[in-house]
Design a protein around this nucleic acid. Structure first.
Lengths: 139, 139
DNA sequence: CTGTATCCCAGCAGATACTG
DNA sequence: CAGTATCTGCTGGGATACAG
């Protein structure tokens, strides 16, 4: 539990304890909150799609098959609210809106890369583990 | 949902690469699956609590304030199914069960460290961004 | 001590339709 | 093009009670 001990809170509102020695000042969002945001269903897809540079709403829609217009908008708003994306609208006609990553989001990409690497390296292991588990546990 | 379904992309039914502009043919959206797992509300807490060595059910319960017995069990089962935790039960009385991390999970800790480091470093920035956004957008 | 089983609800998320 | 609005179903997760 080394890496959460320096002021990260395990659960958002958890009192200080073995897992939540929160040194946060009041009002700061916890690491948990941040991870919740990152772990939401479409955030990573959007962040990845925006990695190469500013990207338009419709381009995002095309780049992320399966996402609904509603969820795209919602997730973009959240990302923007957290200061990870910047929304720039050009008052042309038809309207044109671009989303670009902030420096903070660029840093996040590096962090996500570590996870990606781990995930790809262990994809097979996890699949195998699941298969084994499911076979042992017919229920 | 299936971790290994070949060509699985962001939404699980999307063509490979559609969501992954970066240069990974395997589909970066395996990250989605990983984050879904580790991004679930309690997984990280449990992983962190188990980092120091084998830990008992009751110890986990105490270490993670706010977690319900139900969610602790459920999350442990998922982690075990994915091959991240190993469950060892000693047929003593009263019963004693220990959970320990697999090597794969140990590697994951390193990946999580990168993320949590980022999260901690930008906690204040994110909180500030949110405050700013909420002020600019009252309704 | 280590779980299961059940009920229940808030919020996420999909589908669809409408608008500046 | 880039969204909003609304309805609705689904599931994660809390509370509680029971069990091996």
């Amino acid at each position: 539990m080394d890496f959460l001990s320096a002021g990260a809170s395990c659960a958002g509102s958890a009192p200080a304890g073995a897992c939540a020695p929160s040194a946060d000042a009041a009002g700061l969002c916890s690491v948990e909150d941040v991870l919740d945001r990152i772990g939401s269903k479409w955030s990573v897809c959007i962040l990845v799609a925006a990695a190469s540079g500013p990207i338009r709403f419709s381009a995002l829609e095309r780049a992320i098959p399966g996402i609904s217009r509603r969820m795209l908008t919602l997730t973009l708003r959240n990302l923007e609210r957290d200061g990870l994306l910047v929304r720039t609208s050009y008052p042309t006609v038809p309207p044109r809106v671009e989303y670009s990553m902030t420096p903070m989001a660029v840093e996040l990409q590096a962090a996500l890369l570590t996870l990606t690497t781990w995930a790809r390296r262990h994809q097979a292991d996890i699949a195998a583990a699941r298969a084994r588990y499911d076979e042992r546990t017919p229920g």
